[in-house]
Design a protein around this nucleic acid. Structure first.
Lengths: 231, 231
DNA sequence: GGAATAGTGTCTCTAAGACAGTATCTA
DNA sequence: TAGATACTGTCTTAGAGACACTATTCC
């Protein structure tokens, strides 16, 4: 390997993190955006992001968590690495690396009004800064894929939750109806929900749904089934 | 966003790429390693890797391809991003980012003897520099997972190939036997192989296997099935 | 009781695995 | 012809989806 870049002719690379923060609004996936305050792409909506602070961030994950806390006032969501985007041309300021994370939160914890946070439906994204549009598209396809065989969508829900509500969340994420019997079999198999004594009146004239909460072991941990929710 | 890091107090971050180059040897997954020539971890085996060269590399993918070409004399393998490792403590020289790629090649294209290339079975890794051991473990689990539902293992084979041979490759990667009928159904469903006129004498006293080659459309492209090879 | 949604029992259908049969080569 | 491995037809079995029936609430 070569010497440290500071002692060679390798110019510094711009190192940033960006976060695709997803939530559910009106049963549709939305992404949190923030208008840029400075060039390049001033005033254009962009993913919350920022430079890695080598002094305060122990890892890029910590940097992403800090960005979420500073820019969206959100602590401890489900936060996972998506991919890293890099290249000479994605940022006019120079060769850049963006380590991208994605996070899922229930819309209830979103402090809209904080800063200039805005929500955009992922199916109709506005013009975005940098390559953020394709980043969001990758995040959405990753979330859809993972939702096929895991408990990922529960992180879009606030507890307690009912099975009919959770099924609606899965259907919103996957964009297709799910067989009720199969869905309940899978949720049972995932084994992450435990019933709470007491029921929820869905505000309607009908049988109330059983209320569940996440088992302790599954807080922020993903649970997988062998064959997926459908198929 | 803040100003460019070169005009602030953000110290430069060390930006590198590393490649987990996997191949099959004696029906077992092996990884290509290279002894380090300089500190830190001098003389210890490590993944082929190096700094991003902002002048010559258009993207980190290009940097990974260049590393493979320079250090292992390999051009155009199946090369895909794995994950990015980062942090203050993984490299004693400072805060570092390593964008890690993985590649699959048939053992025939490996020019062992080039440089000090060595091969280690992934099931018995030696002591490795940096956090390269856990990187390799992640790569192996990713390859195993993808092999469940895709054509990934064909990139470990040199063409032409027979179905019995390809099944042995899948079994070596997955570490478990596969049902022959199901396997052939899946390969058919993937639709990436086309028969070549002529047969292969497997060196034995038995019926020769039909020889196949990859369809043009699938060169370096992954093909997926709905439900995986097994289950 | 009627309307509405929650929850469940069970049949069907699809697809994976088991098994055994046929095919084709060498010695 | 015997032995070995390639290939294929078909039965069994497991799991997903469809459907209908029961349960429980409010009006």
């Amino acid at each position: 390997m070569a010497k440290s870049p500071t002692t060679t002719n390798h110019p510094a690379v711009i190192c940033t993190v960006d976060v695709v923060l997803l939530t559910l609004q009106d049963d549709a996936l939305h992404v949190v955006l923030l208008p840029r305050k400075a060039p390049p792409f001033a005033d254009m909506p962009a993913l919350p992001g920022g430079y890695i602070h080598a002094q305060e961030d122990k890892t890029a994950w910590d940097a992403a968590a800090r960005v979420l806390k500073d820019k969206a006032a959100i602590a401890s969501p489900y936060l996972e690495q998506l991919a890293t985007y890099s290249g000479a041309e994605r940022d006019p300021r120079g060769w850049s690396v963006s380590i991208v994370y994605y996070a899922l939160v229930p819309s209830e914890v979103l402090a809209l009004g904080h800063e200039d946070l805005m929500l955009a439906p992922v199916s109709r994204l506005p013009k975005l800064a940098f390559d953020h549009k394709s980043i969001i598209e990758l995040a959405v396809s990753r979330v859809r894929a993972k939702s096929q065989y895991s408990s990922l969508p529960v992180y879009l829900c606030s507890e307690p939750i009912t099975l009919p509500r959770l099924q609606a969340v899965y259907e919103a994420v996957l964009g297709e109806p799910i067989n009720k019997v199969s869905f309940r079999r899978k949720m049972d198999e995932l084994g992450m929900l435990e019933p709470v004594e007491g029921s929820m009146e869905a505000g309607g004239a009908h049988r109330p749904a059983q209320v569940y909460r996440l088992r302790k072991e599954f807080r922020r941990e993903l649970s997988m089934v062998a064959r997926g929710i459908n198929s």
